[in-house]
């Protein structure tokens, strides 16, 4: 019977990404008696990675090849497809990341395996795997299932589980693999986003805006308010997509991760991708018209109202008090 859990080690520019340690921690907690947690290292040179993973898994499978220097979903798929077919794990775990989104679905097709992406939890039943996913912007949860007989693939939202240091001593196995040359897709280079004038990751206070701002013209109200408390203005993805603020002001998984003393979220509903970028702020205040917005689940204080009513009132209050204090 299948019992092992495989975890793909995600790395970029020589560093293992946090999600890998989160997944390995979860895998150690979930693996059943007789099963092993495998860390799968695909790299040009895996030594540094192996060193950091020794305590985290029962076994490390390492495949080294020039072709694995940068992430390439097709080369990854070739080798993952082969080892999953040979070794028949119960589950292969990925993080819900940009790499995974490029490989897991087509790997599942190749292996004819069930796949659920973007889970926040999973359970191993007698003959089924169950997952829980956040749907409709986090307002609803769905419980999915698939038969576990042939194994399956799951991807998990980064930040869902807390990484803990393992105390294992992994057995290391190096495999050679001969790749089929991929000619229709080639990695060219990394492209860095243009650095802006303001680095929101360094800010102590952030006023962040989302869809609730409605119109670009309302930005000035926010800028004025932010200035009155000495904060910088950041935003959620839709504001950048609309071209109202530059990319470097975006908070969230595809933007910046911030940890300010104060984070005021205005008109941001708080989907998973945004929350992961700001949930470690010391104090979070949220203003949103929707009482069910997921942002209230993470905020310390909330106001259920239109930000365009609250912000001017707040600015007025702060100006009054400051004047009173300095008078």
């Amino acid at each position: 019977m299948r019992k092992d859990i495989f975890v793909l080690v995600e790395h970029r520019k020589g560093e293992i990404r946090d999600i890998t340690f989160e997944l390995l921690t979860k895998a150690r907690n979930m693996v059943q008696t007789g099963g092993f947690v495998y860390a799968i290292v695909l790299a040009k040179n895996g030594d540094n990675f192996i060193e950091k993973l020794k305590s985290e898994a029962h076994r490390i499978l390492c495949i080294e090849n020039e072709k694995l220097e940068h992430f390439h979903s097709d080369y990854y798929q070739q080798v993952l497809g082969s080892i999953i077919t040979d070794r028949k794990p119960l589950l292969t775990l990925f993080g819900q990341t940009s790499y995974t989104m490029d490989i897991a679905p087509s790997l599942a097709v190749q292996l004819d395996l069930p796949i659920v992406m973007g889970c926040i939890e999973f359970e191993i039943g007698d003959d089924k795997i169950f997952t829980i996913n956040q749907v409709y912007g986090g307002k609803i949860h769905t419980r999915f299932s698939f038969p576990s007989k042939n194994g399956g693939i799951i991807s998990i939202q980064p930040g869902t589980f807390t990484a803990e240091q393992g105390d294992l001593s992994a057995e290391i196995e190096r495999i050679t693999f001969s790749f089929e040359e991929i000619t229709n897709k080639k990695f060219i280079q990394f492209v860095e986003a243009v650095a802006g004038e303001i680095d929101i990751t360094q800010a102590e206070k952030i006023v962040a805006i989302g869809r609730g701002i409605k119109e670009k013209d309302n930005l000035q109200i926010i800028e004025d308010f932010a200035e009155s408390i000495g904060a910088v203005v950041a935003c959620s993805r839709p504001i950048v997509d609309a071209g109202w603020l530059p990319k470097e002001r975006q908070v969230g998984s595809s933007g910046k991760t911030v940890k300010p003393k104060l984070y005021i979220a205005l008109g941001i509903s708080g989907d998973f991708q945004h929350l992961i970028g700001m949930r470690n702020a010391d104090t979070i205040i949220a203003v949103n018209k929707d009482p069910n917005a997921p942002i209230f689940g993470i905020a310390d204080y909330g106001i259920v109202d239109d930000l365009l009513k609250i912000v001017p009132a707040l600015k007025k209050k702060i100006m009054e008090k400051c004047e009173a204090r300095s008078a």
Binding site: F187, V191, E192, A193, Q250
Partner: peptide, 12 residues
């Protein structure tokens, strides 16, 4: 990719 980074590919 995450964190504002991008990667460039040539695809046929």
């Amino acid at each position: 990719l995450e964190g504002g980074l991008m990667e460039q590919f040539n695809i046929k």
